[in-house]
């Protein structure tokens, strides 16, 4: 299955937010369906430009790698997202392409998230 990161679209004003908040960040609306709060969901684009990044050498104990790179990416629709980078020498402003991959495994729990590659 092609995994995606979802944006949450307000039923009233149409604003798309990521990450999830329990009500619309822009207009404050909550759409109730019985006891459920509902948003329309739409996958976020996965391409964008790199805003900033770091190479972390002191990783949480469940990581085996010596270093992992992280970055904040401005996606092509203007949303921003934090993800891992698999880019040799990242540069601020470079074009990147993301892919949803396994980013962390804590015990039996698997976390999936965006990993960005150079789009050049």
């Amino acid at each position: 299955m092609n995994k995606q990161i979802l944006g949450y679209k307000c039923k009233k004003c149409g604003h798309v937010q990521y990450p999830y908040h329990s009500r619309c960040k822009k207009c404050g609306h909550t759409e109730w369906r019985g006891f459920d709060i509902v948003f329309d969901t739409a996958p976020l684009p996965q391409d964008g430009k790199l805003l900033t990044f770091t190479h972390l050498y002191a990783l949480p104990p469940d990581f085996e790698a010596v270093t992992v790179s992280f970055g904040i990416v401005e996606l092509s629709d203007g949303h921003r997202i934090t993800g891992q980078l698999k880019i040799e020498a990242p540069k601020i402003g470079m074009k990147v392409q993301g892919k949803v991959e396994l980013v962390r495994q804590e015990g039996y729990t698997k976390h999936w998230g965006l990993v960005f590659y150079s789009a050049a």
């Binding site: 990521y18 805003l51 972390l56 002191a58 992280f70 980013v103 998230g113």
Partner: peptide
Amino acid sequence: PMAERIYGVTLPALAGMFTRL
């Protein structure tokens, strides 16, 4: 938890990205 921690992001990582910018 969903947008940062699952990636392995720690406070030093957030600070690193902040510093670079």
